[in-house]
Design a protein around this nucleic acid. Structure first.
Length: 113
DNA sequence: CACCGATGTCCAA
DNA sequence: TTGGACATCGGTG
């Protein structure tokens, strides 16, 4: 059973259209959380494997990051393949087009700053 | 309650 | 510029 926090991560992730990617930091910031690691944990524990495009989440330094709980290997390769099918290509473990990053709308009704 | 994690940022060499 | 260590937040045991 997904927790409240995970739902927020999935909800935000579902906002990312096809052919677009986001970063853990952007997700965390969108959720109003300062910990980017918590976001990755939610994705790792994602009960909605095919429903949640976890492969559209990369590190803030435009690196693939990880996939299925692994930071490298065949799993990560599969992630790059999925992104490639969506038009998001990587070069030297780096995002070729940083403009593919999806910017989340302000999801903080409390923040008046 | 304590440790780990799909990260990020800072400091040192 | 590259490598190592610490910080931060939530989840699981």
């Amino acid at each position: 059973m997904p927790t409240l926090f995970q739902k927020q991560v999935y909800a935000a992730l579902k906002q990312v259209p096809r052919g677009r990617v986001t970063t853990y930091k952007q997700l965390a910031e969108c959720l109003g959380c300062r910990s980017c690691r918590a976001v990755g944990q939610a994705l790792k524990r994602n009960p909605y494997a095919p429903k949640v495009p976890c492969h559209r989440v990369i590190a803030s330094d435009l690196t693939p990051g990880g996939f299925m709980g692994r930071r490298g290997g065949a799993a990560l390769r599969r992630k790059l393949d999925l992104l490639a099918k969506e038009g998001v290509r990587f070069h030297a473990d780096k995002l070729v087009e940083p403009s593919r990053l999806f910017k989340f709308p302000d999801r903080r009704p409390h923040s008046e700053f």
